[in-house]
């Protein structure tokens, strides 16, 4: 069954069209990476799917809901979690409050259990649960964000560049947690700027170029595709 499907999608900010005629679909339990250089529109895909960026034409459904008519918070209640680029934590709340916010509608006892579970996934921070999120390092913040998303039991997890600005060891930590999410049966959609990083995590890769689909297939083929592209037509930065 398709949990995410995008058909002839056009979307953008004001007069600027970030996505042009994009179509793809993702099945339940799949792990897909969306790769592309800056301005290729990969973050826009994530934002469209969670209803943050309006659709100008075409169609997108997530978990059977039409994104055009469903407000963001409804999509989230249906089981979509979108971790935006960078942080995605409330820096004025503590670690455990951030986790509780994700599962605030559960009864108290179960909520406690979920917090414990999340702290276990994070591992190193279990004695600092009352620390404000703003006092954590960037890598730790992202670990908290992802693990609190996991314990909320989403059907679809949209991760927008979760490892941006992290050191190699922190990147490995984040990917380890994402692997745990996969083992829970989550459909994972990972936005990344580098094709080589996603190999071990996602079996399928979608490459975007200037808002259009350039490649959709197995990740190992994708890396070769991207490398070839740059040899032939190096993207200019101005």
């Amino acid at each position: 069954m398709n949990v995410v499907s995008v058909v002839n999608l056009f979307a953008g900010y004001g007069p600027y069209q970030a996505l042009m005629d994009l179509s793809f679909s993702i099945e339940e339990g799949e792990s897909v990476a969306i790769v592309g250089s800056n301005g290729a529109g990969k973050s826009t895909v994530a934002r469209v799917l969670s209803g943050l960026v309006p659709i100008s034409s075409g169609m997108a459904t997530v978990l059977g809901c039409d994104v055009r008519v469903t407000p963001t918070h409804e999509l989230v209640r249906k089981g979509l979690i979108h971790l935006p680029e960078g942080v995605g934590l409330f820096t004025n709340l503590s670690i455990s409050e951030n986790i509780e916010l994700r599962c605030r509608n559960l009864p108290r006892i179960e909520r406690r259990q979920r917090v414990e579970e999340a702290m276990e996934i994070i591992g190193s921070l279990s004695h600092r649960r009352t620390t404000l999120a703003r006092d954590l390092s960037g890598g730790q913040q992202r670990l908290v964000a992802i693990s609190s998303a996991i314990v909320a039991r989403p059907a679809v997890l949209l991760c927008d560049e979760p490892v941006i600005g992290l050191s190699p060891v922190a990147i490995e930590g984040v990917y380890e947690v994402l692997r745990q999410a996969q083992s829970h049966g989550v459909t994972l959609l990972l936005v990344e700027s580098r094709a080589d990083r996603v190999q071990g995590l996602c079996s399928r890769t979608i490459v975007l170029e200037r808002g259009q689909l350039a490649f959709d297939g197995p990740s190992n083929t994708a890396q070769g595709f991207v490398a070839n592209r740059w040899l032939k037509d190096p993207p200019r930065s101005n």
Binding site: L52, T72, V76, H82, P84, G88, F90, L101, R102
Partner: peptide, 8 residues
């Protein structure tokens, strides 16, 4: 961000 946590 709070919308992304399922809050209206």
């Amino acid at each position: 961000l709070v919308e992304l946590h399922g809050v209206d």
